[in-house]
Design a protein around this nucleic acid. Structure first.
Lengths: 209, 209
DNA sequence: GTCTATAGCGGGATAGAC
DNA sequence: GTCTATCCCGCTATAGAC
């Protein structure tokens, strides 16, 4: 890797870190310059504007987070097994990529000010997560025939994750509580009359209402 | 009300609106001045600094939101009735006070930059919400004897609400989905062996695991 | 690709008349 | 309490040597 590419990476690393901590507007080019040791003009040479950095940071966070997420085709013989696998990997990704989600949330908030390209990238990021969640949930609960149920449960899961990400910026040691989430998802599946096979401890699915 | 107080209110209204939309850092004094029609120096006369505005805006949002929330002592003969009441009022408050939560979230994010007073006010705001949630959930499910269960369910509820608030800034028409939340909370209660009385459609509570 | 230097503007904040 | 005018600084962005 040549020096240019290494510099580019260094800038993106620092910028991503600072923006996740302070937000986009509160992060200045000179902060980034000081923190990564490269002059302001180099930053402008690599990315044409502050918005350019924003877009590149988002794109990189998205790629990294999606690569770290478990595959949407969750392996496992029955629902209980697949659900446990899914939740464990979700928790792991949440733990190992604190910046990924916070960048999306923090930067997603300032959509009103951002450029068209940046807004597009934020939506791209968010849509990728939504798709992934829907496919994963659908795979875990075998919901190929019930897309609306899959949608509802995916939304539910993602909102829980976002909410926990929010809680984490008040209390950094916050973890994703997979226990209650597991109970809730099984409850939702049962409520919709989805067959849960031998899932222990949740009783038989009652009639859907 | 004299003119001074009215001006103060007008400034706070505009500042709160702008800050909820753009975030703290991206909201400038001159933006506020232009939007509310009062000169910059009046703003500085009422609030000594930009941070002063921040604190006042947060304090006001907290007061307004807490006043709008249903009382923590939820009325109702049985769990199902109290839960329905609780969820309906929660949804209503969520719908009617979009700024309250977003201010807390958006401003809470920039804690690192903010003054001591502002950070204190953010935590105060957040703690008030946590307390309210815990007491409400405890009242709905009669959890006086099981504080840990109440804590878990309150955290769960709040995270769902925060997550939905996040979703709303991507898609403004987003509403709090009380249906799935209801199922999830009943499932959690059952999982902890909490007596749910005549709650319809959820089956008998299985043995706690 | 990286450096120094600087333009040009808008930010937060203040002075002092009224 | 509200106004006009202004200070000073840091911001985004560029120019041009190397």
């Amino acid at each position: 890797m040549d020096r240019g590419a290494r510099s580019r990476d260094a800038i993106l690393d620092t910028a991503g870190d600072l923006m996740a901590r302070h937000g986009f507007a509160a992060t200045s080019i000179s902060m980034i310059s000081t923190a990564c040791g490269l002059p302001v003009s180099s930053i402008y040479w690599h990315f044409r504007s502050k918005d350019g950095i924003y877009v590149a940071v988002l794109e990189r966070a998205r790629t990294a987070l999606l690569a770290a997420l478990p595959p949407a085709e969750v392996p496992g013989a029955d629902v209980a097994q697949r659900l446990d696998t899914f939740l464990a990997e979700l928790e792991g990704a949440f733990q190992r990529h604190p910046r990924g989600v916070k960048l999306l949330l923090g930067l997603g908030m300032v959509q009103q000010d951002a450029s068209t390209a940046a807004v597009a990238e934020v939506r791209h990021y968010r849509d990728a997560l939504v798709d992934w969640a829907r496919e994963s949930v659908s795979s875990v609960f075998a919901l190929g025939e019930r897309p609306q149920v899959a949608d509802e449960m995916a939304r539910f899961t993602l909102r829980m994750v976002s909410g926990t990400a929010v809680a984490r910026w008040f209390e950094p040691q916050t973890v994703l509580e997979t226990g209650p989430l597991r109970v809730a998802l099984l409850g939702l599946a049962a409520h919709h009359g989805v067959t849960v096979g031998g899932a222990p401890g949740e009783g038989a699915p009652p009639a859907a209402s």
